[in-house]
């Protein structure tokens, strides 16, 4: 790869959505979304339940076909019959729900290894066991490689889904509430892994409820409400009325005693004009 090519690639948006609408039956879920994610950015997609966050990321990775509008992934248009042009080896997707799976139990190794298949790669590459092991180490579950996935807890299954996305060593990671239901120690481990990957040039679009452990990494926040982008810029401040005694988010860091830090962590999405 020549230097000039790399330069043009880094200037190009990694994700580019224009005028995205999505209708499911009578409900108009996405109502004209414009979203651009540049290389190296860590963009948090925030919003209340039902605001359309998951529908949007699912449209961005090709699961939902938008009713109107266009998506470009890594510079290539995403549409019927055009999917092959996208370099899927550079994209990792972590869905929201854990416990996906069919009628037959499968092991952690089998599920994570399926992340190594993408685009036209229909067979596992050489050395896949080592790559699966490395991905599981990043989520702290390397010792469970032979266990059936349904024997793991919900939070552990969520981490398996993260490992499945990381195993192909993507340049762009799209995560849908990756730390919902994950304990604090694992959230910290996840944040540390993400920091290392972001330092290495990873671009991230992450759906979050609150910024939590990922807050220091987030470079931009996009807030959805009623299927529209209502904020795109600096991460919004927490709602003051949520920042009461009894609503303080428990946090095990010894040095985490500053009140304003706690304010920022307890982000519950009050977007001010």
């Amino acid at each position: 790869m020549t230097d000039t090519k790399q330069v043009t690639e880094t200037r190009e948006p990694v994700i580019e959505a224009r005028g995205l609408h999505f209708r499911a039956g009578a409900s108009h879920i996405l109502r004209g979304i414009d979203l651009t994610v540049l290389p190296g950015e860590v963009v948090a997609l925030l919003g209340a339940n039902g605001s359309g966050k998951s529908t949007l990321v699912r449209a961005l990775v090709g699961i939902n076909a938008p009713s109107e509008g266009a998506v470009r992934l890594l510079g290539e248009p995403l549409g019927a019959g055009r999917r092959a042009a996208v370099d899927w080896s550079r994209i990792g997707y972590v869905p929201q729900r854990a416990g996906a799976g069919g009628g037959i139990p499968s092991t952690v190794q089998e599920v994570v290894a399926s992340g190594l298949l993408h685009g036209r790669r229909l067979r596992l590459p050489r050395g896949w066991r080592d790559r699966v092991h490395a991905a599981l180490e990043q989520v702290g579950l390397a010792d469970r490689v032979r266990d059936p996935v349904h024997h793991l807890s919900g939070g552990q299954q969520q981490r398996i889904l993260i490992a499945r996305a990381l195993v192909r060593e993507p340049d762009l990671l799209v995560l849908d509430e990756p730390v919902a239901g994950v304990d604090m120690a694992s959230q910290e481990a996840f944040a540390a892994t993400m920091r290392r990957l972001v330092d290495g040039g990873l671009t991230v679009l992450v759906v979050l409820h609150e910024l939590g452990e990922l807050e220091p990494l987030v470079s931009r926040a996009v807030v959805l409400r009623h299927g529209k982008v209502v904020h795109d810029g600096v991460p919004p401040r927490a709602r003051q009325d949520h920042d009461r005694a009894g609503h303080r988010h428990q946090h095990p860091h010894a040095d985490d005693n500053a009140l304003d830090t706690a304010d920022n962590r307890a982000l519950d999405l009050e977007v001010r004009p």
């Binding site: 990775v61 092959a84 869905p95 996906a100 499968s106 399926s114 298949l117 229909l122 067979r123």
Partner: peptide
């Protein structure tokens, strides 16, 4: 047998397989 990994991926989690660009 030859396509078992791809067929497993598509059967196990169809949405993830779509988001991986698999046919």
């Amino acid at each position: 047998v030859g396509l078992r990994h791809a067929l497993f991926s598509a059967s196990h989690d169809e949405e993830f397989a779509i988001a991986s660009g698999l046919p």
